[in-house]
Structure formats: C-alpha cells, structure tokens
Computed example of a mutant assay.
Amino acid sequence: MRYFWGFILLIFSVSCNSDSTNRNPFLQEVNFRFELNLNLPLYNDLNNIGNPVYVGNSGVGTRGAFVIKSGLDTYVAFEASCPNHTPNNCSTMTIDGQNVVCSCEDFTYNLFTGQQLDRPDDGNRYYDLLFYRATQSGNIVTISN
C-alpha cells in the first residue's frame, strides 16, 4: 500500500509544471546570440539613452530584434515580429520614436517596457513584446535568447 501512495505522489509531482512564465504561443523560442559593437556607425545610436536600433540580421530572433539603451548601462531587446499573431508578410514591426508599430492592425508597443499601448478591451488575450536578454561588456552589447 505504501508503494501505491508513493507512485501516486510521483505521478502528481511529475505532472505539475513549475514554469510560471507565460510565453507567447504565436512566436517560437529561437535560440541565438548576436553581438553589437557600439563603435560601429550602424549601432552608434545605442550609445544614447532612448535611441532604438533594429537588428535584422539572419538568425536574430524570428524577424530580428529591437534594441534600446534604457538606462546608464542598461539595454533591453525585444522580438521584431508582432506578438499578437503568427509571423506573416506584415508582422515585422517598424520603429516610431521609442515605440514600435505593427502594420497588420496598427498595434503600438513601448520599447522601454515591451507593453502594448493600445490594448483593445474586447475580452481577448493580447501579448506584450517578446523579451530577449541584452548584456553589455565594454563596447559590446550581446543580445540572446
């Protein structure tokens, strides 16, 4: 009888999911690592707080990434594909100041927080931008997932 209860406890402990993150079902988990050299003119805007850069290199995220310097030594990076539908011909967002806009339905997202700024109040689930890690070492900012 003791083995029976042990087996039941094992089943319950294996079936529980401790992953509390709520990842976006529209975007795949793409593993990548890309370095941005802040000495290059292409990434020069990242030397100032609030100037976003689009990194559209092959192998960076699904549709590229947006990177912005959000503080003195802090950078944030987000997926460039709109988070509220599967990637398609209109889902790569464009920079509009310190925001990005999805041309599919004109949703706007803030690049400092990743939050959707114009979330409809229609009872549907909407997702914020997919976050990527961004770390700085000297003049190199590394974005990865």
Results as ranks from 00 to 15, higher is better:
97 G>W: 06
124 N>E: 15
82 C>G: 09
12 F>W: 11
121 D>G: 04
118 D>V: 01
18 S>L: 14
108 T>R: 14
61 G>Q: 10
75 Y>I: 06
53 V>R: 10
118 D>R: 00
135 T>W: 03
26 F>M: 01
52 P>E: 05
68 I>E: 04
122 D>T: 08
129 L>W: 05
117 L>S: 07
111 L>W: 00
17 N>Y: 07
58 S>K: 11
86 T>E: 12
57 N>T: 10
73 D>K: 10
106 D>V: 06
82 C>P: 02
71 G>A: 11
57 N>R: 11
35 E>N: 14
84 N>A: 00
134 A>T: 05
106 D>S: 11
31 N>R: 14
94 T>Y: 11
32 F>I: 04
90 C>G: 00
68 I>T: 03
106 D>T: 07
95 I>S: 09
110 N>C: 01
82 C>A: 11
135 T>Q: 15
71 G>C: 01
37 N>W: 02
48 N>K: 15
102 C>R: 07
80 A>N: 06
135 T>M: 14
22 N>A: 08
92 T>M: 10
8 I>R: 08
49 I>A: 03
53 V>Q: 05
45 D>M: 08
7 F>R: 08
131 F>R: 15
108 T>H: 04
23 R>Q: 09
17 N>M: 08
24 N>F: 01
102 C>Y: 09
91 S>V: 07
67 V>Q: 07
56 G>Q: 04
88 N>W: 03
87 P>S: 09
76 V>I: 07
40 L>N: 14
82 C>Y: 01
40 L>P: 03
100 V>Y: 03
39 N>S: 12
53 V>D: 05
15 S>W: 13
11 I>P: 02
26 F>G: 00
71 G>W: 03
75 Y>C: 00
23 R>K: 11
89 N>S: 13
16 C>V: 12
2 R>I: 13
3 Y>N: 13
127 Y>P: 00
6 G>P: 02
11 I>C: 15
12 F>N: 10
43 Y>A: 08
120 P>Y: 08
115 Q>N: 14
97 G>C: 08
82 C>T: 05
35 E>M: 13
22 N>T: 06
104 C>Y: 10
27 L>G: 12
2 R>H: 10
78 F>M: 13
68 I>K: 02
53 V>W: 05
44 N>G: 05
19 D>Y: 06
101 V>K: 13
87 P>C: 07
60 V>E: 11
11 I>T: 04
112 F>R: 00
8 I>F: 12
92 T>D: 11
91 S>T: 13
60 V>G: 05
36 L>T: 01
89 N>V: 13
26 F>A: 01
3 Y>W: 10
29 E>A: 10
54 Y>L: 14
26 F>W: 01
4 F>G: 12
5 W>V: 09
100 V>D: 09
78 F>I: 00
87 P>N: 12
129 L>E: 04
100 V>A: 01
110 N>D: 15
16 C>F: 14
41 P>I: 06
116 Q>N: 08
100 V>Q: 03
125 R>Q: 12
44 N>K: 15
95 I>D: 05
116 Q>E: 13
61 G>H: 12
129 L>F: 03
13 S>Y: 06
109 Y>R: 09
102 C>Q: 07
8 I>N: 01
56 G>A: 15
16 C>P: 04
63 R>Y: 11
36 L>P: 02
68 I>L: 03
48 N>D: 15
54 Y>F: 15
30 V>P: 01
127 Y>C: 00
78 F>N: 00
102 C>M: 08
60 V>P: 02
76 V>P: 00
